[in-house]
Amino acid sequence: MIQLYFVLAFLFLGLSVGSLLERLHYRRIRRRELGFATQPVVTFGMFPADKTIVHAELALGSVVISVDYFKRFAASLKKLFGGEIHSYSSLLDRARREALLRLKESCADADLILNLRFETSTISNGNNSNIGSVEVLAFATAVWYQTCDQRPEVLAG
C-alpha cells in the first residue's frame, strides 16, 4: 500500500515539477535561439569559394537530459498500443536544441558553422531498458572569414 502512495507521489511530482521545468527550459531555449538567428549553420562540408577563410576549428556541444517520472509512466502505457510517443519526442527535441545552442555558444563569433552532425546515445540505467535519459552531441567545423582590415599575410601564418 505504501508503495502505491510513493508511485502516486512520484507521478504527481513528475507531472507538476517536470512539466514546469520543461516549460522553463523551452523558454530559455527559444530566447537563446533568437540570439543566434543570424549565424548560418549548414550540414555540408564545402567551404564557400567567394570568401577567404582565416581560421577553422572543431566545435562541440553536448547535453544529457532525462525524462520525468510521469512521462516515463505514460510512455510505458503507450507502448502497449503502439504509435507515436509524444513524451519522448519533446525530450529529444530539447536535447538536440540545447546541444546545438551549446555548440554555437562555444564559437559565438564564428561566421559560419559547417558540416553539422548530431550523435544521439542512450545512457543505460541497468535495471530497466526504458529510455531514461539521452545524450546528444552536436559537432561541426566553425570557420572565420577574413575581414577587410586583415592583410593577406595573416592567412599564410
Partner: peptide, 10 residues
C-alpha cells in the same frame, strides 16, 4: 530522473 531535465553530472 523523477522530475526530468538536464543531468549535469553526466
Amino acid at each position: 530522473n523523477l522530475v526530468g531535465g538536464e543531468l549535469k553530472g553526466y
